[in-house]
Every structure is written in C-alpha cells, then in structure tokens.
C-alpha cells in the first residue's frame, strides 16, 4: 500500500515535470533579448516593462478574463442543473437531448463560429461581449455536463431522499446535500471551462467585435511579426498571479480552521 502510494506520488511528479517543462521555457524566454521567440541571446527585463506600454495587449487580457469568468460561471450553472435534471427526472427523449448536448464538442470550431455568426445576424444581436460569452458557454457547458454526469453515476439515491425525509424541500436538498456531493465535479467542470474559454481562437474570431478582442486573437495576430517576448512576460505575470492567489487562499483557509 505504502509502495503503491509512493510510486503514485513519483509518477505525479513526473507528469508535473512534463506539464511545466514548456512553461519553464516560456518563462525563460520572457527574459530573452532576442525579439523573436526562437533562439536564446541574452538576459533582459525589457519585456516586462513593455507590458505596460502595450495597452492593446493588456486590454485583450482583460477581455479574455471577463469572458472566461462569466462563461465559466454560467456554464457551470447551466451544465450542473442540466445534468442533474436529466438524471433525476423522466425527461421525454432524454437520449436525444444528451446527443444534442454532445454536438458542440464534435462540431469543428470554424463551423460553430460561422453558424453562430449567422445566427446572431438573424436574431440581430450585435457582436460584442454578449455574443462571445454565448458562444463560449455553448462549447463549455457540455464539458461541465459530462463531468457532472460521471459523478452522478453511482449516486446513492438515499442521500437525497434522506434529506427530503428530514423535511427539506427539494431546493434545500439540492443545495445542502447534492451540491456538496457534486463539488469535485463542479470544480473540474469549472476548471475545464475556464481553460477552454481562455484559449479559444476560432469561434471567438467570428463572434468578437473590434472592442472585444481577446488575448488569443491578439497573440495569433502577432505570429507573422514574430511572437515577441512581451507575450511570454504577460503569461509569466499571469501564472505568478494565479499561483500566489491559490497559495494565499489555501493558507488563509488553513489558518481559519
């Protein structure tokens, strides 16, 4: 048992090295004097200074974060209630609905982008944050649903019924019993949604307006001139910021206990 746990921990560490190897390169190149992100030349902090001059890039990062945060939140709500409802109630043609939910995952991004663009023209929805967020929710919520469904499989029905027997309304039972039970799946779904939304390029191109360009659009546009290390610098700052937020919040949680 002990040996198994140790080897699992070692394997996890190996996979983490795999995850962070390119990230280490990315961070390293943020200190590179060469403008082209290809060969190492020398050390500089210049690119960190240039983040503050690059208003367009910072604006794109802001847009990306706004879109990713709202899309994640709404995808989680839509996907969690959706998965629970389809699981708990006898819904007519449930298999059809489940298959339809599956479409955004299989549909090529360009088709999704073009067809949503045409839809927005038909329903006269002006391109902007709303249209990007709608599109992002559409390709994110199926991921949440799949994660929740996997967690629901094998759910002990007595759990919810016991709560109801104790006099809780279904809504309270959902909130007090089910949500905590589903929490790991909700967190997984949220992490996947956030990641997908933050890095999506093609659907976003078709549904964004001039003022709502996101970071991936901006970065892709820069490939031709060479991806300059400012992009690495901004990624590094973003990673550092997230890591510190996570660590600090964990520390606070532990202290409060």
């Amino acid at each position: 048992m002990k040996a198994v746990n140790t080897s699992l921990a070692i394997w996890t560490a190996v996979v983490m090295v795999f995850f962070y190897l390119p990230i280490a390169i990315l961070v390293g190149f943020s200190f590179n004097t060469s403008r082209l992100n290809i060969l190492w030349e020398g050390f500089t902090l210049e690119w960190y200074a240039s983040i503050w001059r690059d208003a367009v890039l910072v604006r794109a990062l802001e847009n990306s974060l706004i879109v990713a945060a709202i899309s994640t939140l709404l995808s989680v709500v839509l996907g969690t209630t959706g998965a629970w409802m389809l699981y708990r109630y006898r819904v007519p043609a449930v298999r059809l609905w489940q298959t339809l939910v599956f479409i955004p995952m299989i549909i090529p991004e360009v088709i999704m982008g073009v067809s949503l663009l045409i839809l927005f023209v038909v329903i006269q929805l002006e391109l902007g944050f709303a249209t990007i967020i709608i599109s992002h929710i559409t390709f994110c919520f199926p991921f949440v649903m799949v994660a929740i469904e996997a967690r629901l499989a094998g759910l002990d029905a007595s759990l919810e019924e016991a709560a109801m027997d104790l006099g809780a309304t279904p809504a309270v039972a959902f909130r007090k019993v089910l949500v905590p039970y589903l929490m790991p799946a909700i967190v997984s779904g949220a992490l996947m949604s956030f990641t997908l939304s933050l890095d999506e390029l093609i659907v976003t191109y078709f549904t964004a307006s001039a003022g709502t360009r996101t970071l991936p659009l901006e970065i892709f546009g820069r490939v031709k001139k060479g991806l300059d290390p400012t992009l690495n610098a901004i990624s590094t700052v973003f990673i550092l910021a997230t890591v510190s937020v996570v660590l600090i919040s964990e520390l606070l949680k532990r202290r409060s206990r």
């Binding site: 995850f19 390119p22 290809i38 990641t195 933050l198 990673i239």
Partner: peptide, 16 residues
C-alpha cells in the same frame, strides 16, 4: 497545478 500551465497561450506553449 494541473490546470495552470494551460492558462497560457496555446501558441506560445506549442512554440516552447
């Protein structure tokens, strides 16, 4: 830790 690497740009990661 599993997710954070993927909060960087796909292109920059792949070029790395």
């Amino acid at each position: 830790l599993v997710m954070i690497p993927f909060w960087t740009s796909f292109l920059i990661r792949t070029y790395a």
